[in-house]
Amino acid sequence: MSSKTERIDDVQGVNELLWELSREAGEVLAVHHSRRQVPGGRLPGFIDRLRTGVSWRTIVPRALLDDPASAAYCRQLHQAGDRHRVTDDSVQQMIVLDRKVAFVPTMPDTRGAGALVIRDPGTVATVADLFERVWTHAVDLETAYPPVLLEHQVQILRLMTTVAKDDIAARELGLSLRTYRRHVASVLAALDVPNRVQAAVVAQRRGWI
């Protein structure tokens, strides 16, 4: 293996080196497949550092947001300055520090795998370019953040996007037309969309209809 590439099979060793290098980095590019945890007790310091102006960008898969704890964690970091975008594309995990050092997994798509630490300028530039290409087409976390609907709101959503007339949908639920339309308005507000057409788009994307 090249002197500019180091293999670390110990996950803890990877995390410690990554943490050490990232504390001094001015720019960090990251792709994560699962919710990452800042090492125990370091989260407040990490968030404080984000607020100093370090450029930190992270890409996560949309499926990660289906887990409420992971989505909340990503949002916490996003609001602190670790700008998150969400992608539907398949892309390997990576971390690039100051465009000088890149971490990639020794075994793709394998949880708990070690990492290759790459310092070769050409290879690091290629990894960083891949990140930028995915970043360009990914969407901001706040836009992609999955709306949360109560069970009865999902039922309303299905009817309002599949039944042509409100009075028919209202009768199916045993509601007055006025009450049904009030529920429709609450669903549109929860989804942050202006009309039923866009509500249907969200519903299809989320698998609700």
Rank of each mutant, 00 (worst) to 15 (best):
A63G: 02
Q153G: 13
E24D: 13
H32L: 14
V201K: 10
D88S: 12
N15S: 05
R49F: 09
D192N: 14
V124Y: 05
G41N: 09
D89H: 09
L18Y: 14
M107F: 10
S34L: 14
V91P: 00
P61G: 09
H152D: 13
R182E: 11
H33G: 15
E142V: 11
D66M: 13
E24H: 14
R205Q: 15
R83H: 15
A185E: 14
S186R: 13
L141E: 04
E16Y: 00
V101E: 03
P147Y: 01
Y180I: 06
L177S: 05
S34E: 13
A69R: 09
T123Q: 12
R57I: 11
E20T: 12
P147L: 06
V96D: 01
T126E: 10
A128F: 04
L177W: 01
S2Q: 11
A170H: 05
I156C: 04
V101G: 02
L150V: 11
R42P: 00
L149I: 10
A138R: 07
R49Q: 11
R178Q: 14
V197L: 11
S22P: 04
L159H: 05
D192Q: 14
V201Y: 07
H78F: 05
R83K: 14
G40Q: 08
V60S: 03
T52H: 05
L141G: 09
G81A: 10
L173T: 01
S3G: 14
R51A: 14
L77F: 02
P44D: 09
R178W: 06
A115T: 01
V14W: 02
V184H: 07
L173I: 02
L50N: 09
E27K: 13
G45Y: 06
P146K: 06
L175F: 12
P68Y: 02
R206K: 15
H32R: 13
D10A: 10
H84W: 04
Q198A: 14
L21K: 13
A102G: 04
V202P: 03
E27F: 07
D9R: 08
E172P: 03
G40P: 03
Q93G: 10
Q93R: 14
T123S: 10
G174V: 12
R111Q: 06
L18P: 00
A69Y: 09
A30H: 00
E172I: 15
S55M: 02
S70V: 07
L116S: 08
D140I: 08
